[in-house]
Design a protein around this nucleic acid. Structure first.
Length: 476
DNA sequence: ATGTGC
């Protein structure tokens, strides 16, 4: 899209001034090139979000923004419940609490090298992945309820992972305020045998090497050294989150009129935060967050099992787990005043700056680790939250490279088999259950993750700490 | 994202 549709405030801050039915301005953080490559739908969707009741300060889009359902992916919007603020299922996204966690292994690239193929084979064998993948765990009704309430804390109690992992997860691994009764029978049924599964699409488990350090002090706090091997897991709440999203989206669209909400786009279906429907969605969504946290915790356990078998000297320690599809009640400073707001982050990561009380002690000086997943075969980044992000985006940053091309377009342009060969030639092992899935995730179908990260840093959202290059990638 | 869907 043409960057000149925006009012440019500085090199990486672009504004859509408040106009028409907008209640606040729209703000996009990106550079000129990223905006030129961006879908014009981002402009339209940001304008629509800015028109929703009770929105505070501005509707924001991160540098990896692209066209999503209703809200842009890479969007941040905060609402005040006392000013008619709303919660929107489309503003959270279908894959509730989709996110990334990264673990150190204590291994160097040289130590891993001779075992790479074996490790890849075992990971593919042990990590359930792909469309409709199921695991060995079957949850009975009471266990499902306990999982939806307890999240990763429940998983640890079941023997998946270690208690110290929990301090390295947002909300200490358990999202408070979950209401399992608000989750439908159908959603629970879909999830019954999907715990500890990776899923498909852009989800992955990747073994990576630290290829560059930008901020040695923060890197040390995160446990990252040059040439260290780490593991990143990217996945979400599987069938359960999707079912919750589908059901509430429909219900919110049907009840908009009853709540006197004029929707600029039907896809922005929402309900007042202070309404039975809004509260019920929040309860179900928080249960969905717990499902995703438990899922990543179980996958961590399976990964540790594989390493124990192939490389017993490894010790997998969790750096941090971040969600990038959520709506959370948080305190933010708006115009010098502290307010309780409900912050939607859809394809956007929380990025708390140094000293924030919700941070684990180890990160008080550095700020929160912000994990940026690259596309298959390209680099990932570890960033750290900056103090400036609070005023710029309610303490949020980008979440990944962001698609530049549709899945359909990508399958016409690339073949999975060719991509796997090409990446193998560059020392990257891809193991997947679907060639088509690999083609859809072709590196060329994504934006340049380095440009996204540079723009985020320049905009004061998060600063670079380290770059990770892929060694092994397990895909759905 | 998703028991991928016109």
């Amino acid at each position: 899209m043409d960057p000149d549709r925006f009012t440019q405030l500085d090199a990486t801050t672009w504004q859509i001034p408040q106009q028409g039915n907008m209640r606040v301005p729209g703000i996009l953080y990106a550079d000129r090139q990223l905006i030129s490559d961006m879908d014009a739908k981002v402009w339209e969707q940001l304008t629509n979000v800015a028109a929703l009741p009770g929105i505070v300060q501005a509707a924001y889009a991160m540098p990896d923004a692209h066209w999503g359902y209703g809200f842009p992916i890479g969007g941040v919007a905060a609402f005040d419940p006392d000013q008619g603020g709303v919660v929107s299922a489309g503003g959270v996204g279908f894959d509730i609490s989709c996110g990334v966690r990264t673990l150190t292994t204590g291994l160097s690239v040289d130590e891993l090298q001779p075992h790479r193929e074996t490790l890849a084979d075992f990971l593919l064998y042990r990590i359930p992945a792909g469309v409709g993948s199921t695991g060995r765990i079957r949850l009975k009704d009471a266990e499902m309820t306990a999982m939806l309430e307890g999240g990763a804390d429940w998983a640890v109690r079941q023997g998946y992972g270690r208690r110290e992992d929990l301090e390295r997860i947002e909300e200490h691994g358990r999202m408070a305020g979950a209401v399992p009764e608000a989750v439908s029978e159908r959603a629970r049924k879909r999830q019954r045998d999907e715990m500890g599964t990776l899923g498909s699409g852009n989800h992955y488990l990747e073994v990576q090497a630290v290829s560059e350090i930008y901020d040695p002090e923060a890197a040390t706090a995160f446990g990252l050294q040059p040439d260290a091997v780490v593991v990143s897991i990217h996945c979400g709440s599987r069938g359960l989150g999707h079912q919750i999203g589908t059901e509430f989206l429909r219900e919110m669209a049907l009840s908009a009129q009853q709540y006197h909400i004029r929707l600029p786009d039907r896809e922005l279906a929402c309900a007042p935060l202070n309404s039975p429907l809004g509260e019920r969605y929040l309860g179900a969504m928080r249960a969905g967050i717990n499902c995703a946290l438990a899922n990543r915790q179980i996958l961590t356990h399976l990964t540790r099992d594989v390493f124990a078998h192939v490389l017993p000297e490894a010790d997998l320690q969790l750096i941090y787990d971040v969600s990038h599809n959520t709506c959370k009640e948080e305190t933010h400073t708006v115009g010098g005043e502290k307010r309780r707001l409900f912050v939607h982050r859809k394809g956007a990561t929380r990025a708390l700056g140094p000293g924030h009380p919700d941070l684990p002690e180890a990160f008080l000086d550095s700020g929160q680790p912000v994990l940026i997943g690259g596309s298959m075969g390209t680099a990932s980044y570890v960033l750290a939250g900056m103090a400036t992000s609070e005023g710029r985006s309610f303490a949020s940053a980008c979440h990944g490279a962001g698609r530049a091309m549709s899945r359909h377009q990508a399958t016409k342009r690339w073949r999975g088999e060719d991509l796997i060969d090409e990446l193998a030639g560059r020392g990257i092992i891809i193991r997947s259950h679907s060639y088509r899935g690999v083609a859809e995730e072709a590196p060329g179908a994504y934006k340049d993750v380095s440009a996204v990260v540079e723009a985020a840093e320049q905009a004061g959202l998060a600063r670079k700490v380290a770059r990770l290059r892929p060694l092994i990638c397990i895909k759905g």
